[in-house]
Design a protein around this nucleic acid. Sequence first.
RNA 1: GGCCCGUUCGUUUAAUGGUUAGGACGCCAGGUUUUCAUCCUGGUAACAGGGGUUCGAUUCCCCUACGGGCUACCA
Length: 470
Amino acid sequence: MQKVITRFAPSPTGKPHVGNIRTAIFAYLWAKHNKGHFLLRIEDTDQERLVPESLKYIEESLAWLGIDFDQEIIYQSKRKEIHQKYANDLLKSKRAYKCFCTKERLEKLRENQIKKKMPPGYDGLCRNLTKEELLAKKDASYVIRFKMPKNGVAKWDDKIRGEMKINFDISDDPIILKTDGFPTYHLASVVDDHELKITDVIRGEEWISSTPKHLALYEALGWQPPGFAHMPHINGPDGSKLSKRHGDTALLDYRAQGYLPEAIFNFLALLGWNDGTEKEIFEKKELIKSFNLKRIGKSPAVFDIKKLDWMNGHYIRNLTTEQLKNKIIKLLPGSKITKLKNLDRILEVEKTRLVVLCDIEKETDFYLDAPKYGAKLLIFKKSNKTDTLKGLTETLQYFEAERWPDTVKGLNLSLGNVAANHNLSNGDVFWPARVALSGLEKSPSPAELLWVLGKKESLKRIKKAINLLK
RNA sequence: GGCCCGUUCGUUUAAUGGUUAGGACGCCAGGUUUUCAUCCUGGUAACAGGGGUUCGAUUCCCCUACGGGCUACCA
C-alpha cells in the first residue's frame, strides 16, 4: 500500500478564503487519517496575478488552524525548468506543438465563434504545421499547446462523485507553456503532482471540466494518474458563490473577530462532511481518526454564521478561565479590560455570554469605571421607589456590618438574606443592586458583580445609587 | 450556446425500496431565575416538479425546472 500524499495548492493571489481552507482541511485530514503526508505547494506560475503578501497569509492561515505540512514549501515558479523539460518532451513525442497564434487572432477567433453560437476554443491552426512553415516562424514567439485526443473518453473514479466520464474531444488544445516560459496550471499541476507522488488530488469542483486534459496529459507523459476528489463549493446565504458581499470570506478575518481556530476547524470540517453518527463536536484528533473522503457530500453548502457562532460559544465555554484569558490578551493586547487586576473574575462571569472573543469589549465598560445610568432603571418593573431604596440601603448596611463572603454563592445568599430579613421581594434587592453595579438592564447577576468588583467598589456604587434615587 | 456537476426542514446534515423521514443550528414555548447569558424540556419545519420501474418509491431510471461550474498565454 503506497503512502497517501495530499497537497494544498493555493495560488498566491490574496488571503485564503474559507472555501480554500476547507479544501486544505480535508486534504490534511485525509493525509493524516492515512498516516501520510500533507504538502503545501504554491501555484505561483502566473506572475501577473501574484500578490507577495499572500504567501504570509497562506502560512499564517494554516498555522492558526494548526495544520502543519510536511516537507518545505514547494514553489512552482522555482520548478519552471522542470516544467519546460516535460513540455519539450511532449513536443518531441508529437503530443504537443508550438503555436504561433497571436493573442489578437485568438481573441477574434473567439468573438466569431460566439457570434456564430459555436463553442469557443482554439481551432487547431498550428496543430499540423509543416516543417517548412515551422522553420519560417522560427523567430516568432510561441506557446506550447497539448494535443488533446480527438476521440475517446476520460474516465475516472472520483473519490467524492463516483464514476465520471467526459469526452476528450470537447476540450480544445490547452496551452501548457506560455510565452513567458511559465507553465499553465494544467502542465504544472500534472508534473508536480506526479513528481511529488501525490496520491489524491483534492480540489474544488471547478476543476471537473478540465480533468480530461489532465488525464490526457498523464497518459501522454506515460504516468499513472492520481486519484481525484472534487469538492463542492461553499456558497453564501443567497446560494451564490461565497463572496465579499456576504461578509467576511478570508479565514484570517475570523481570527480578527475572535473566533477560535478549534471552532472554525470543526465547523468547516462539518460543512459537507459528517462521520455518519450524530456527533458534531470534534477535536482535531477525532476528525483525523474518523475522516473519510467517501463521506463528503456532493452538493454545495451554505456558510451559516449562526451555527458557527453557536459552535464558537460552545468552545469558549469549554475553555478554562486561564486559557480564555491568554487567548483574549493575545488577540486584544491593547484592550483596557485585559489590564484589569480582576480580569480572571470578569472572564469567569462573562464566559457564558461571549460568542466571539472580541465580545469582551462589548457592554463591559462598567468593569473599568462606575457606570452612568438613569435613576429609573434602578426600580424593578414589579417594585417601587420606596422598596427599591430600602433594598439598596439594607444591602449596604448588611455588607457594612457582616463579613464579606468572597464567593458568588455566598454573596447570593447574603442578598437573599437582605430580602428575607426586611420582608422585601427579590426584585427589590437583586435588581437594583445589579443596576447599581453595572448600570445595565441586562447583565451578569448581582452576586457575580459583587464578587468581581469587590467589597469596596461595590459598596461605593451602591451608595451612589442610593443618592441618585433620593 | 455547448459540456459538466448538484437538488432532504430556513441552514447544515442522517437514514431507507415499506420509518411517526432522525440530529444539530436558528426560531417559538416552558422550566431554572431579579435581568441577560448558560443549562434543561418540549414544539415548529424537508424528500424541487412530472413521468416511469415496482405490490410499494424520498431512495432506482428518464425528462423538466432551478442553482452552480467550466468554456483565458488565471488558477
